[in-house]
Each structure stands twice: as structure tokens, then as C-alpha cells.
Design a protein around this nucleic acid. Structure first.
Length: 425
RNA sequence: GGAGAGAUGGCAGAGUGGUCGAUUGCGGCGGUCUUGAAAACCGUUGUACCGAGAGGUACCGGGGGUUCGAAUCCCUCUCUCUCCGCCA
């Protein structure tokens, strides 16, 4: 969330930048400014009275100690009115605070100046492409047909056990999942990321910290008995490792990677977009998260984009990198790069990664700070994350792009992870 | 699920109604000594908000209450630990 003081000092900037995200912030910003001003007045007033109250209390204590109880009792009477006034100020102050907090979470993050103007997906800017388009054999099939033909993934069985969007992976289908997870984690480790295994259920505070709550409850599975949420991405538990933490500047950037299953309710999706592996309620993903110095967070972003790019290149998949336009960006992001791989039989691009700099937006909610050498005052850090990578669409693209009339070839980098198997028949 | 104990500063651990933002130890930082280091000694060391500043206010797990005054008393919630039960 945006810092209140920042909003108050830069109202026009906030309104102007949020217009890029096609968000009209004027009314909220004006309310925030008015409330913030009143909040400070109330605080100052009540603190003067509290100071007086503290002074009187000490005096009364001293009078009792000196045995001057009649003087003490008359001093007590003076506190009655004061107490009342303090109480009133506190009620008003609390009301203002909660109203401010509610307004504050309505404002999305400011997009970086690098973000292109635009309405939706069609306005995203392709910043890089790579890999070679495969030449498919006659009668090439989409991945869901291949998955059935080679008995790799059973979608109907998943429906029986759970429901749509919860496939059962079998044989090489299961092994290729495991191979990809291990490959991605090994790559991350070699690139200096600390591997962690986070919980898959998180509490409300964690959901709030990364921006899923309030507001996006509908996207997460929720266990009401214990009030816990199934994670939609490892970003949530991993970033929350750093909630209420002050780190040393010399330790930045902090690089963390985690594999997790991800759970998304994805209400309202249908049609070819959700066919096969294109969109699932449960899927696997390796996520990378960074805590960065504010001066260096864009350097970190570039490194993360280059890293994800190296993964899709090693897998030999044709890809493109998009810089999302304002209208297509998420609520919490300052800038986002999407990676898409070409799914040759479906003849469409599939999003497999999203790499974002959140700047101070999440860190403000998380109270994630860092301290420069010495006794410097803690400052808000920057957070970033990216998928590296999400499995299902990678599997879809591998199945489709690597299909031959003899079977499905295994990308070279995965062969060692599949016990030397070079082709799935 | 049953019974009990507990939650205090980076960590350990005092503090049961007043001058306590909080004894002390460890750790961290600075210094003395040393060729250097260790040891020893001295000093220093929480966060947030308001304020131009001086300074003020708040915070001892969260919330509420009693009181002129609460880390300390009362209520409530959450969490942790121990034992029993169940269990991968």
C-alpha cells in the first residue's frame, strides 16, 4: 500500500500515475488528505492532554507518598474532565485511523514510468523474443490429446476425485513434473537463491501482507474452521517470511526460491482458455522472491528477467517477453514482465511467468525494512518476485512442441532428470 | 480432543500498582590497551507517530476493563510449551 505521508505530499503525482492503471484516484486521495490532516490535529491535541494527565498522576503519587492526602484528593478531581476529553479524542482518532486504513488499501501501486499506456493485453509491449518455432509433423495434436494418448495426465480422474482443474499426472506425466521442479530448483540454487519449503496454508496477516487480502478472498480457497487460506502462489508465504523484519543493508538483495503447489479458485473462467493444462485450480510452480535495496530493485528486476529467460531458453521453447501496459497490470505491481511460450499445436502464446517489482508497496504492508550501516533509521525495502517457472503450461508447450510421430522428445536439460529417457513413447 | 504452564527489548532473563521504555547477562556498535587479535575495561545500543525544533505521545502477545496512575490487578481472544489421547 502507499504511504499516507507520500499521498499527502504528492497528491497530483498519485492521481496521474494511477490514471495509467486506469484507476481514478482523485476522490480517495482527497479524502485521505482531509482525514490525514484531521488525524494529526487530533493526535497533537490529545497528546498535550495526555502529557498533562501524566504530569498530574505523578504529582498525585508524590502527594500520597508525602502524606498529603487531602491535597492529593483535590488534585484527583482535576483529572476527571481531562480523562473525558482524552477519551473523546481517542474515539475520534481511532475512527479516523480505521477509515484511513480502509481507504489506503483501495489504492493500487503506482506504475513505474517505464510502464506503457494501454487498456489491455493488446497494448502490452513485446520487449524480446527467442527460441525457434518448431515444425510439427502432419496431424500434430494439442497437449490434452497427447496426454491421453501417452497416458500422462488423466483429467477425468481428477474430476472424479476432486473436480475440474485438478488433474492426475501418471507415469512419465508425473515424472516430468518432478523433473521440472528439480531442474528449476537446481537452477535457482546455482544462481544464488536460497531454497525454502514454505507452508501451503497461510493466515490472514500473511494474506494481507502480500496484498491478496482484503478484496481478493474469492481467488483463494479458504478453510473457515481455522481461518486459513490455501496459497495461490509461494510468493505469499515466502514474502511473509520477511513480515515485521528489519534486515541489514549489507545482506541485500536477499534471494529466495521455493517450490510449491498453488491453489486458485479462478472463478468465472471457461472455454478454450481452460482446456487441458491451460488453467488449473491446483498446479506446481517454482517461485523466486527478492528483497532489494530501493536503489537497486530495478537492477534486481533485470537480473530476474534474464534468469527466467535463461530457463525457457534451456528448455528450448520459443518465447516472448512482454512489458505489461498499465491496464493489464496487477494491483500491487509497479512493473511487470510476462513470459509467454509458444504452444505450437494450439497455436497460441501461453503465459508461464510473471516477474514484477512491487517497489515499496508490499513492504509497506509487511513492515519490511532495512537498515544502512551504523545507527541509521530503518527504511522500507523493495520486494520483487517471479515465477521460475509455472509448470502446467510449460508441460503443455513441451508436449506439443516436442511431439514427433514416434513419441515426445525430452528437452535435453531434462534427460538427466528423467533417468536418461530421451523420448516418451 | 483433555489437563497444566507461559507470552517482557536481537537473544536469554528480572520486574506483582507510582520516578519503568523497563535491572542484569549475552550479542551488536564505538573506544582504551595491543605490532595485530583475544581477554579485560569504558561508553553506547528498540520501534512508530506528532512536531521546524526543543520536545511530546504510544508500545512489555492482541483487544477491553478497574485506577489519579497498569508490564504489574480483572475479563477476553490468539499463540507457544509440557503431559495424556489420536496420528503421517
Amino acid at each position: 500500500m502507499l504511504n499516507l505521508k507520500f499521498i499527502q505530499e504528492n497528491p497530483e503525482l498519485v492521481i496521474e500515475r494511477l490514471a495509467v492503471k486506469r484507476f481514478d484516484a482523485r476522490v480517495i486521495v482527497e479524502k485521505v488528505i482531509a482525514l490525514y490532516k484531521r488525524r494529526n490535529e487530533v493526535q497533537s491535541e490529545s497528546e498535550i492532554q495526555k502529557a498533562e494527565m501524566n504530569r498530574l498522576s505523578k504529582e498525585i503519587g508524590q502527594l500520597f507518598k508525602d502524606g498529603k492526602s487531602s491535597e492529593a484528593n483535590s488534585a484527583k478531581e482535576k483529572t476527571v474532565e481531562l480523562k473525558d476529553q482524552i477519551k473523546n479524542f481517542e474515539i475520534e482518532f481511532d475512527a479516523i485511523e480505521s477509515e484511513l486504513a480502509q481507504l489506503q488499501v483501495l489504492l493500487p501501486n503506482l506504475p513505474s514510468p517505464l510502464v506503457p499506456i494501454g487498456k489491455g493485453a493488446e497494448d502490452n509491449v513485446v520487449v524480446a523474443t527467442g527460441g525457434e518455432m518448431p515444425v510439427l509433423p502432419e496431424g500434430a495434436k494439442p497437449h490434452w490429446e497427447l496426454a491421453a494418448q501417452y497416458d500422462l495426465i488423466d483429467f477425468e480422474l481428477g474430476v472424479k476425485i476432486t473436480g475440474a482443474g485438478f488433474p492426475v499426472y501418471k507415469g512419465f506425466g508425473a515424472r516430468i513434473q518432478r523433473a521440472l521442479i528439480n531442474f528449476f530448483l537446481d537452477q535457482a540454487r546455482e544462481n544464488g537463491y536460497l531454497e525454502v519449503q514454505p507452508p501451503y496454508l497461510v493466515n490472514e496477516a500473511s494474506g494481507f501482507g502480500t496484498g491478496q487480502l482484503p478484496d481478493k478472498e474469492g481467488q483463494m480457497y479458504h478453510d473457515k474452521t481455522d481461518n486459513l487460506y490455501l496459497i495461490p502462489t509461494a510468493e505469499v508465504p515466502v514474502t511473509n517470511i520477511f513480515r515485521d523484519v528489519i534486515v541489514e543493508a549489507k545482506d541485500l538483495p536477499i534471494k529466495t526460491a521455493a517450490y510449491s503447489a498453488c491453489f486458485r479458485r479462478e472463478a468465472g473462467s471457461y472455454g478454450k482458455d481452460v482446456r487441458g493444462l491451460n488453467r488449473l485450480h491446483q498446479f506446481d510452480k517454482v517461485e523466486i522472491v527478492r528483497i532489494a535495496h530501493p536503489d537497486k530493485s530495478y537492477e534486481s528486476l533485470d537480473e530476474m528477467v534474464a534468469y527466467v529467460q535463461s530457463l525457457v531458453e534451456k528448455l528450448g521453447l520459443p518465447y516472448r517477453i512482454l512489458r505489461l501496459c498499465g491496464g493489464d497490470m496487477g494491483f500491487t505491481s509497479a512493473i511487470t514482465y510476462d513470459f509467454e511460450v509458444w504452444s505450437a499445436a494450439q497455436e497460441r502464446w501461453l503465459e508461464v511467468s510473471s516477474v514484477s517489482n512491487f517497489e515499496s508497496f508490499q513492504a509497506t504492508r509487511l513492515k519490511l525494512r532495512f537498515r544502512e550501516e551504523g545507527h541509521a533509521k530503518p527504511q522500507i525495502a523493495h520486494t520483487l518476485n517471479g515465477s521460475a517457472l509455472a509448470l502446467p503450461r510449460i508441460v503443455a508447450a513441451i508436449l506439443e512442441n516436442y511431439q514427433t510421430t514416434d513419441g515426445i522428445r525430452v528437452p535435453k536439460v531434462l534427460v538427466p532428470y528423467l533417468g536418461g529417457c530421451e523420448i516418451i513413447r
